[in-house]
Structure formats: C-alpha cells, structure tokens
C-alpha cells in the first residue's frame, strides 16, 4: 500500500483583511506524528481546517492521496442538554456496529461511560470519546485539534500515550495541535512552529533550539514538574504500586 499524504502549497488565508496564514507549505505523511505549536492567534485552528479540507484557502493548493481516510477529533463539541445521547450511541452515529464501538471504547479506556450521557462526561472523558469516534473510521490520517484541552497534567500524558498507541495500531499519520511542546516531544516525529507563517520546523530537538522558536516561547519555560508516587486511572481511583517513594519536598 502506498503512503498516504496531505500536502499544502503556498497556502494563504485572511479574515476581514487580516492575514491569518502566509505562504504555508507542508507535507504530512502516513506513519508520522506531526505536532503544530504556536501562540494564541497564530492560525493553528485555521490551518487545521484547511488541512482537513473544511476551509478552502484564499490562495494556494491542497492535495491529498486518493485513498486518504481522515479521522478528526475536534477541540470540543457543544451538545444541547436536551439531546438524549449516550457515549455508545454517540459512537454508533458513525454507522459502525455496536461491537466495534464497544471495542473502540475499550481501547480508549472508556467502557465505564458507555451508558453515560455525553453531556455528563468530564473534560478528559469527552476527549477520549472524541478520540474513540475518530479512530472508529479506521483512518489512515488522524487530525487532532488540541486533544488535551481541559485535561489535567497527568491525564494529558495518558491521553498522549493513547493517541500514540492508536496511531501505531492503525499505522496512520497524525497532525495535532498542542500548546506545550515539552509534553509531546517524546511522542512527536516532527514539529511545526506556527505564527501566521511557519517560523521553523523539524525534529523536536532541533525546533526547541531554534531562535525563532525561542523568540516565541522564551528561553526558560518553567514547567512545574510534579512527581506523584501514585497514578489515577480514568475513574479517579488510585492505581498503587507504580512508584514507592514520594518525591515531594
């Protein structure tokens, strides 16, 4: 099977006479995890919508392989509380069998929420439900817009791991938007630093040393590293025995 790709050539986009994206060219490949980072208002979400084909850019081209099958995980969805919809049913809306949906819930560690109304899911659970729905279509390309939004730091790590697992199992290409490069560094093949134009791109180690990156994100990103001696699973229960000594001061 050929490697699926999505390519952008010299894409420009403006809203109300304000340039949002300038001359963006990029190539996304199946089997490669690309992380898109950039400050607020850098045009990340706009770029994602162009990559998805939801938005036709003012100028420039978007090309994709013929057998591309997209899976998309939106930032969040707004469901009215009057819509009675369980998580399982939410997945079944993709025209997949109940068994497959249940399997996807298992992989996303979400079985306990199968009969929970979607509106009652916590932030982290909602993201996992959206991820499960995205992978249900067996995509060869997965596009995630801020997948860890509203998830606490431990949950973020877990979620990134789940995404990495999914992409490996499905052998798909991944494009995800992230605010924090440090957290995703280990799980990323390529980083694109965006601030209306592509400031720099390459391997994560290269990008973090790039002057353009440092100009935007500063030289000292003070990350509060908080080492727990235990771990919570999704139900909030403590999983014991992962670490013996507490590293708190």
């Amino acid at each position: 099977m050929t490697t699926q790709t999505i390519e952008l050539h010299n894409v420009c986009q403006s809203f109300k006479n304000e340039m949002v994206l300038e001359n963006i060219s990029l190539r996304l490949k199946q089997g490669e995890i690309t992380t898109l980072i950039g400050p607020n208002g850098a045009g990340k979400s706009t770029l994602v919508r162009i990559v998805l084909g939801l938005l036709k850019p003012d100028s420039g081209q978007r090309t994709q392989s013929s057998q591309l099958r997209l899976g998309y995980m939106p930032q969040k969805i707004k469901l009215d509380p009057t819509l009675p919809l369980t998580t399982l049913r939410f997945l079944q809306l993709t025209d997949t069998s109940r068994a497959e949906c249940q399997k996807a819930l298992e992989m996303a560690e979400m079985v306990h929420t199968a009969n929970t109304p979607v509106q009652c899911l916590s932030g982290g659970e909602m993201q996992r439900a959206l991820l499960a729905r995205a992978v249900l279509r067996k995509p060869n390309f997965l596009i995630l817009d801020e997948p860890v939004q509203g998830v606490d730091i431990n949950g973020q790590n877990d979620l990134y791991n789940t995404i990495a697992e999914f992409s490996k199992t499905l052998n798909c290409g991944v494009l995800m938007v992230s605010h924090d490069l440090h957290l995703v560094m280990s799980a990323t093949d390529k980083v694109i630093c965006l601030n209306k134009h592509i400031c720099c791109s390459g391997l994560p180690e290269q990008v973090t040393q790039d002057p353009a990156y440092l100009d935007i994100f500063g030289r000292t990103t003070a990350l509060y590293t908080h080492a727990h001696n235990h771990h919570h699973n999704l139900q909030g229960d403590v999983v014991v025995g992962t670490n013996s000594d507490c590293k708190h001061d």
């Binding site: 969805i77 939410f90 729905r133």
Partner: peptide, 17 residues
Amino acid sequence: WKPLLNITVDPELAAIE
C-alpha cells in the same frame, strides 16, 4: 435521521465523516 443527528452533534465532524 442519522445525518440530521450528526450535523446536530457537530457539523464539522459530520462533514469529515
């Protein structure tokens, strides 16, 4: 019915699907 439910849940997701 199903497409209507899907655009109700999220139009962009529905479009991608």
